[in-house]
């Protein structure tokens, strides 16, 4: 049984079954397909640098190893930050009531949305529905599965229904006249550079 997004507002809990909103479900999709001279669909593969092996789809595996090539299972490793301090994993927020706080439009605009869910509102509390209908936006922490740092989920309502927008803050600052142009760093890579139209791939 799938878990719901559960939130608490004004002392009342609301539980939402949810469905992911994606471009291909709304608009359809464009896919790039490779065919041979007879028009038969082909697949992609990897040819090793020395030409000794042709690796078909599904022919590779990712393995956690150290510098001595000792392999580790997922539960035999722990996450640390750049200074080596341990980062504690946090449990998924699904199925666990999260306290909502009211958010401004600016706060929502400060975050980039990575996933959108449409919510089924059969079990929404009357006070939350009234607040959303009045144009309020709400925010809560969100982790789909256990992870290191939660995203934010924003609840908004429009004529189509109630949606949950999962996002993360951009960290954009105000800039002054004397601010120097920021160089590209590992912390700030040009994300548009890798922004190929994946519906075409």
């Amino acid at each position: 049984m799938a878990k719901n997004i559960v939130v608490r507002w004004d002392g009342e809990e609301s539980a939402f079954p949810f469905t992911k909103v994606e471009r291909d479900k709304l608009y359809g999709s464009k896919e790039r397909v490779i065919v041979d001279e007879q028009g038969r669909t082909c697949s992609s593969a990897w040819l090793t640098a020395d030409g000794s092996a042709l690796v078909l789809g599904g022919g590779t595996a990712h393995v956690n190893v150290d510098d001595a090539w000792t392999a580790y299972e997922q539960d035999e490793r722990r996450a640390v930050d750049l200074e080596g301090r341990a980062l504690e994993p946090q449990p998924s927020t699904l199925g666990v009531a999260q306290d909502l706080v009211e958010a401004s439009v600016d706060r929502l605009l400060d975050c980039t949305t990575s996933v959108v869910y449409q919510l089924e509102t059969d079990a929404i509390s009357a006070s939350l529905l009234a607040a959303l209908s009045a144009g309020k936006i709400f925010e809560a922490p969100f982790l789909y599965r256990d992870g290191l740092s939660p995203d934010s989920v924003f609840l908004v309502k429009n004529d189509e229904g109630v949606f949950a927008l999962v996002g993360r803050a951009t960290g954009f600052d105000f800039v002054r006249r004397d601010a120097l142009p920021e160089p590209e760093t590992a912390e700030r890579e040009d994300e548009l550079d890798a922004d190929l139209d994946f519906s075409m791939m």
């Binding site: 090793t48 190893v65 490793r77 722990r78 996450a79 640390v80």
Partner: peptide
Amino acid sequence: VRYVSKANGAPIHLERLIKTTD
């Protein structure tokens, strides 16, 4: 985020290895 061994603190990285070929 980086990952280290719980047992000895050795840095761990992900490698993509060949499982099967054509």
